[in-house]
Each structure stands twice: as C-alpha cells, then as structure tokens.
Amino acid sequence: MRESAAERHDRLLGLVRERGSARVSDLAAQLGVSPVTVRRDVEELAGRGLLDRVHGSVSWPQGAAHAASAATAGPGGPGSGLVLGMLAPSSTYYFAEVIRGAHEAAARVGARLILRISDYRPREDQARTEGLLSAGAEGLLVAPGWQHPGDPAAFGDWIASLPVPTVLLERRPAAGSPLDGLDRVCSDHAHGVLLAVRHLVDLGHGAPLLMARADSPTAVAVRSGYAEALSVLGLRAPQDVIDSVPAELAPDAFEEAVRALREAVRSGVATAALIHNDVDAIQVVQRLAELGVRVPDDLALIAYDDEVAALADTPLTAVAPPKREVGRHATELLVERLGQGTDTPRRHLTLLPQLRVRDSCGAPLS
C-alpha cells in the first residue's frame, strides 16, 4: 500500500526528533522520496511550528528546547525523561493544531512527545499505540481514527485496557461504555453549531440548511448538534441535511450536493446555510457563484472548523473549535494524572468553540 503524506510526515518528524537536526537531502534518502517532496513536507510542517528550517536543513523547534530548560521540577520536569505518546488520525488540517498544542504543553514541562498517525484507519490504531508504548511512552493521548458511528464499538475496546494513563482527545464514547470512564478533553461541537444557528437567526434568517459530511466524529457531532440547536431555538429544518463529500474524491456527488443547495436558495426554502467543513464550504461558494448564487447576497453562510475559512474570496464566518487548547489541556491533564496516580477521579473536560464573524453572512435582513 502506498504511504500516505501523513505517514511520511510522521516518519520525517521522528527522524528529526531523534537527530535534533538533519539535512533535507539526508532525509530524502532516509524516507525514500525526492528532495522536492521532502522540501514540500518540511515547508508544511515548519508552517505549523513542528519543525525549524534553515538553508537546506531542519531541526527540532528551538521553542521546545527552551521551554524544556525553563520548566520546573515535578512530573515532566528537567531531567525527568518523561515520555508521552500521542496517537492522532492525521497530522494535517484539524489535528495539526491539536498536535501543536500538545507539543507545546509537553515542552513546557520538559517532557518528550512522540507521535503516531493512523491516517483515519481505525484498524491500525491499536498497533500504532503499541508502537508508542514500545518507544517508551509512559502516558498516552489517544484520538482514534474513527469515522463512522459504529467504529467505537468495533475498534475501541482495547483503549480501556491500556497499561498506562490515557486521555482521549476529541472523542466522546457511548455513555456507560468502558471508554466513558477514561479522562478526556473534547470540543463542544453542539455549542458551536448553536452559536452558528443563533447568529443566522439573529440576522433575520429562518432556520439554516445544513450541508455536512458524515465521515468523522466531528461531522457526526455537527449533525446531531444541528438537530439539538433547532430544538433549543424552536425551529424546524427547512429540508433534510444535504450530504457533503470531498469534491476531489467524488466530483459527481459534490456537484449534486451543490445543486441541491442552489435549488433550496432559488426556491426560497432557505436563505442561510451551515457547511461542514470549511474546505468544502470554500468550494461550494465557488461553484454556487458559477451557478448564479452569490454569498452573502443570495445566501448567508457559516463554515465549521475555521481552518482556512478566512482565506476565501469572501472571508467566511466560521465556528472555530478550540483545537490547540484541546491538545494543551489534554497534555496537562495527562501529566497531572501521571503525578497523582490512579486514585483521583477521572475528568471529562469540554471546551467551547467560538464564532468568528467575517463577511459571508452579510448585513442583518431588513
């Protein structure tokens, strides 16, 4: 099977972390790819603060080393050698900021964070986590690569029996399940959706349409949060949720979804929409313009995730989950758990998203 970019990034980060610094040409040889590919990878990882780069070489971020030297004593303090493991489904898009927050928090207490990426293949989560344990991880941050509602039951039982303290990241297992008894840190996506729906209603719109994916826990949470928000506000959905798919993977299905949204606007069914995620939202806005529907003139629109929403031609209002803070708080909780032992009560920490208002909702309706 061809190695994904996320897996290559994982290996690249591991090589640099082990060596402290490395030349791009040496990394290319070690990874078995071209120097152009490595330079592109390094540029992306450096942009997210995971590497430093200077004149053909890369190094582990100096900020991490500085933070480690300035940390106080205690679990993870100078010289403690504390190693934390992190399993993430991706090192890009949403989870890039989660990883960065975890990395910064680990560095502040002088701990080493090692990373494995599952590339949203939940069947591989257990093996990759065992790799973290073999590498010396004394505590784990785990964001399983679940994509579908049945995945926690099919690919999650092993997490509850891990031999070291474990904190779940951005995952809400079923109430009463063994995983529900673990520490966890999550974004409250239902609150984020409520912020978006309420903002559009306050501008004078009726209940907005939802166009959303169904291929991740965030997507599932956005869908359930939409139904909850409408109930809280006493609204009824103008029509069924429009299923969204990545344009590059299923162009025909993407086109069908965009045309369904255009028809809803043209027929007066809805004047506002919430779209998960913002990559899809940007592409939807572009295609709608080609079909004669303008944002925000004809359709007020809010995106969900706020990864690239501000970069659209018309900057998109977006719900921003506190991704970096999730990584930071989860790491701090794990370090605290390692210092306290297993007798203290477990915690479920929920962080609230923010609504970042830009141009795509337009002015209030008269």
Score class of each variant (00 low, 15 high):
M1G: 03
E7R: 14
L15F: 11
G20I: 05
S21K: 02
V24T: 15
L31K: 03
D41I: 10
D41S: 05
V54G: 02
H55P: 01
W60N: 09
A73E: 07
G74T: 09
S80V: 05
L87Y: 08
F95A: 01
G101H: 10
V109A: 13
A111P: 03
L113A: 12
D119H: 08
E130R: 11
L132D: 04
L132F: 09
S134T: 07
E138H: 07
V142K: 06
W146L: 12
Q147C: 09
D151I: 11
D151M: 07
A154G: 00
A154D: 00
G156Q: 07
W158T: 06
L162E: 03
T166C: 04
L168S: 05
E170L: 13
A175S: 08
P178L: 03
L179T: 00
V185H: 02
D188I: 06
H191P: 05
H191L: 12
G192V: 13
V193L: 07
H199C: 08
G204S: 11
P208L: 10
L210G: 01
M211A: 15
A212K: 05
T218P: 00
A221D: 06
V222W: 06
S224A: 05
A229R: 03
G234Q: 07
I242H: 08
D252W: 05
A253L: 15
F254L: 15
A257H: 13
V265F: 05
R266L: 15
A272K: 00
I275S: 09
D278Q: 07
I282P: 00
I282W: 01
V284Q: 04
Q286A: 11
A289M: 07
G292F: 14
D306E: 12
D306Y: 12
A310S: 14
D313C: 05
D313K: 10
T317P: 07
A318P: 04
K323R: 13
R324W: 12
E325W: 07
V326H: 02
Q340P: 00
P345A: 12
H348N: 05
T350W: 12
L352M: 10
V357W: 10
V357G: 04
G362D: 00
L365G: 03
